[in-house]
């Protein structure tokens, strides 16, 4: 899998796929997409990179180990879940800003929840695959 074409292509594919995954994530509330799919696409982007450049290189590129993403994502989702309680509302009540933002639409707690899911999915998939790649050699 060390073909030069794929190697070169994956360098350019990584940012494009990541951008695409964020696009999928953000439009999720209005069109097909969302945190799960977005996270999976982002994970595929990194996996592709690791296939051509080796796991170590991808880990270096990521700077932080993907397993660190799991608690971050969980915390984000949990915060957006419990945030309404500060307002005295039940858990998971949707909170929304009044002004819509272009492309994304309205920003609300559901969006942050979805971003949390996105981060967890990336963390989980990459942790599993990279650990297997590293340890099963």
């Amino acid at each position: 899998m060390k073909s030069t074409i794929l190697k070169t292509a994956s360098i350019y594919l990584l940012p494009i796929l990541l951008l695409f995954s964020i696009f999928i994530l953000l439009r999720g509330h209005y069109f097909p997409g969302g945190g799960f799919v977005g996270g999976l696409i982002a994970a595929i982007a990194f996996v592709l990179h690791s296939f051509t450049h080796g796991t170590e290189a991808t880990l270096k590129l990521l700077r932080i180990h993907p397993s660190a993403l799991i608690p971050v994502g969980l915390a984000l989702a949990a915060i957006s879940m419990f945030a309404p309680m500060l307002n005295g509302q039940p858990v998971m009540t949707g909170l929304w800003f009044d002004q819509p933002v272009p492309v994304i639409g309205l920003i609300g707690s559901a969006l942050f929840f979805d971003i949390g899911v996105y981060v967890v999915v990336i963390g989980v998939v990459l942790t599993i695959l990279f650990t297997i790649a590293q340890y099963s050699g």
């Binding site: 999720g28 509330h29 209005y30 069109f31 097909p32 997409g33 969302g34 949707g94 929304w96 639409g105 309205l106 609300g108 559901a110 979805d114």
Partner: peptide
């Protein structure tokens, strides 16, 4: 819920 993709 201010969303149009019902699944999401």
């Amino acid at each position: 819920a201010k969303g149009k993709n019902v699944v999401n």
